[in-house]
Amino acid sequence: MRLSIDHRTVYRFTEPQARLVQMLRVNPQNSHDQTVASWRIDVDHDARMREGRDGFGNAVTMLYVDGPVEAIKIAVQGEVVTSHSDGVLHGVHEPLPPAVFQRSTPKTAIDETLAAFARDATKGAEPHRALHRLNATVKEGFAVERGRGQPGVTAAATMARRSGTARDLAHVFVAGARSLGIPARYVSGYRLGGGAHRPAPHGWAEAWCEDIGWIGFDPCTGLSPEDGYVRVAIGLDSIGAAPVAGSRLGEGEEELDVDVTVLREE
């Protein structure tokens, strides 16, 4: 499948900023089921950009902008050709062993409720089956919210509300899998469907099965990702995989506006 992606991010500041340093994780990588045909990042300011990699193997673009900046627009556009292997990853650059993805983070902290939820959902099934059950159970038991949601929502909080954005549901899955002793991680990327002009990129999860490898799970659908998905970055949670991590020098508040359109090209 050939997908075109248009991902625009606008930051507006109530006070002009003296300078901005941002770390972008917006570059998809080639793998067995994903070939990047074209990709570009445009910024509406004079800026210096540097390519690199983070510790998880994600492609990173450092963005350095001199002020005064009142607003900045980052436009990411490109085309990716996809296929699928039932959610199983092949040919992905993996610098870290799965055991690293056992650790929790503040957003994916495991409490007793979460652990019990994961136990009840999987009832002692072997890992591969357990993960599919966990995914389906999150899908059944949680309402999917559109929108970007609140920052800083923990898996435990989403558990209590039984409702959350794609990102929040992925956190529940990740925490649940880890509570079963299975390495799991957060994925940020794009997904076809849901219409144009969505307010956020998509987020889902991956978990490790000893005999199979890394497998994707999308608790929004209860299924594994197929060829409508473009995988961009992974992390221990959504913060570690965030498309934009920023720091600014200046007073005031910021306002964020995101617009994502994923279309199928003929």
Partner: peptide
Amino acid sequence: LKEGVLPEDLVLGNPQFRPEIAGM
């Protein structure tokens, strides 16, 4: 770790191991 001198999880699961800078 590959040679099994240390238990893998003692290093990889240790909060003091910082995956953020692995490979650097």
